[in-house]
Design a protein around this nucleic acid. Sequence first.
DNA 1: TCTAAATCAGACCAATACGTTCCGATTACG
DNA 2: CGTAATCGGAACGTATTGGTCTGATTTAGA
Lengths: 136, 136
Amino acid sequence: MRLSNLADYAVVMMCQAARHCGGGRISAGELAQETRLPVPTVQKLVSRLTGAGLLRSVRGAGGGLQLARPAAAITLVEIIEAVEGPIALTTCVEGGECPADAECRVRPHWPQVNQAVRGALAGISLAALAREKEIA
Amino acid sequence: MRLSNLADYAVVMMCQAARHCGGGRISAGELAQETRLPVPTVQKLVSRLTGAGLLRSVRGAGGGLQLARPAAAITLVEIIEAVEGPIALTTCVEGGECPADAECRVRPHWPQVNQAVRGALAGISLAALAREKEIA
DNA sequence: TCTAAATCAGACCAATACGTTCCGATTACG
DNA sequence: CGTAATCGGAACGTATTGGTCTGATTTAGA
């Protein structure tokens, strides 16, 4: 039940991008510098985030990144799933196989648990994360 | 955001133990046979679950395992944390270090996210998981 | 039209963590 | 006192992750 480091970094990057959203585009290099993250790592994350439709990139000289949607319309679940793939607590949720096979009496309950976790993460928007020090 | 296999197995084991709870104790070997899990794996899980106070074991000849508490009083969070350790989505939640260090503006929000996930898992009891095919 | 700058996409390598298995120590029943 | 069964820790092999690098594509500016 731990988030991968890349997903953690992706959230930090998106928050930083949200802060620059008013100022137009921001280059990947600047983003790396401001977040203290290695440049190649930022590039890798940008690839996945743009592929998921969360980030919009303008190529060529003078290009850069910007949010594809308003920060309030981007949720934590989307960022995490863009980096880590679909959230599936157990392998059997997505067609995997259990040793217990068909006799597993717990399997019918896993989708319910899965949705509970997804719901908790879907209730948090990027705009809320970018706000400064709101503990409540 | 995936659950480790051991945690998954632990849930299956606990459900099976809950079904035998009325019949008194059950040996680790029987538990392994009924869940189709390797015996050494079951032993390792039993170690952690008893250490966490979820399972009670009687040693010696004719011994076995049984739930330390009623199934309704055991939640999914307890089982997962007994196997995987405390739930911490990010390393910084538990005193770890970020590359972004003190400048990280997202860190104040992580405990809130962490609690949301924990809450989702704490709302599901072992008794609910042991019930047969309740999709709702 | 040409040069230069910056991003995108893919493959590669190292490292950490996970899963599994095995063996010795302890304890209770007969 | 002997037997049986569990508990605890240690070690191995595997797999996923994290991080890096190189080549290809695209655009602005001269």
